[in-house]
């Protein structure tokens, strides 16, 4: 019985990546493709660029290789790896989100969503000031109302 232990992934740029099956089945989409017998030659991933795909493979590899134990050191190592993994610019995060959605890796997707949420939340003070100025009902604070009151009095 011949059973291939490696899977070939072909990406958007036509580049091929050879990965172990245990790593390749991390994304649910690929797992389903293998189950359905669509993975005899190579799996086409037309939506994913080579930069993103290599990042995804790197992540899957790390999570597969780290023993699934309750050991504190292993957990901390994985956490710091994830932390570094999402330290990327907006463009990369954007591509990662789309790729993750396509490949269906829930764990990684949750991590990236939370990163983006923290980025949006942590706008710079100038940007927040701008928001405050424009949207009165959200930020209608006492000071603002008093200023308006005095302005109208002057007029």
């Amino acid at each position: 019985m011949s059973y291939s232990k490696t899977i070939v992934l072909t990406n958007y740029d036509g580049e091929t990546f050879v990965v172990d099956e245990v790593v390749a089945v991390e994304p649910q989409t690929i797992e389903h493709m293998i189950e359905d017998g669509c993975a005899n030659t190579s799996i086409p991933l037309p939506n994913v660029t080579s930069k993103i795909l290599s990042k995804v493979i790197e992540h899957c590899k790390k999570h597969v290789e780290t023993p699934n134990s309750n050991e504190k050191a292993a957990k901390a190592d994985l956490k710091s790896f994830d932390f570094d993994f999402v330290k990327a610019d907006q463009g990369t995060l954007f591509d990662l989100i789309l790729a993750m959605n396509y490949l269906n890796i829930k764990e990684l997707l949750d991590l990236i969503y939370q990163t983006v949420a923290d980025m949006i939340k942590g706008k710079t003070p100038e940007e927040e000031e701008e928001m405050r100025r424009v949207n009165a009902w959200v930020f209608s604070c006492f000071v603002g109302v008093t200023c308006l009151y005095f302005k109208s009095k002057k007029m």
Partner: peptide, 10 residues
């Protein structure tokens, strides 16, 4: 790259 707003196109 950082200055380009990509999230808006999600």
């Amino acid at each position: 790259i950082e200055n380009v707003d990509m999230f808006s196109s999600l």
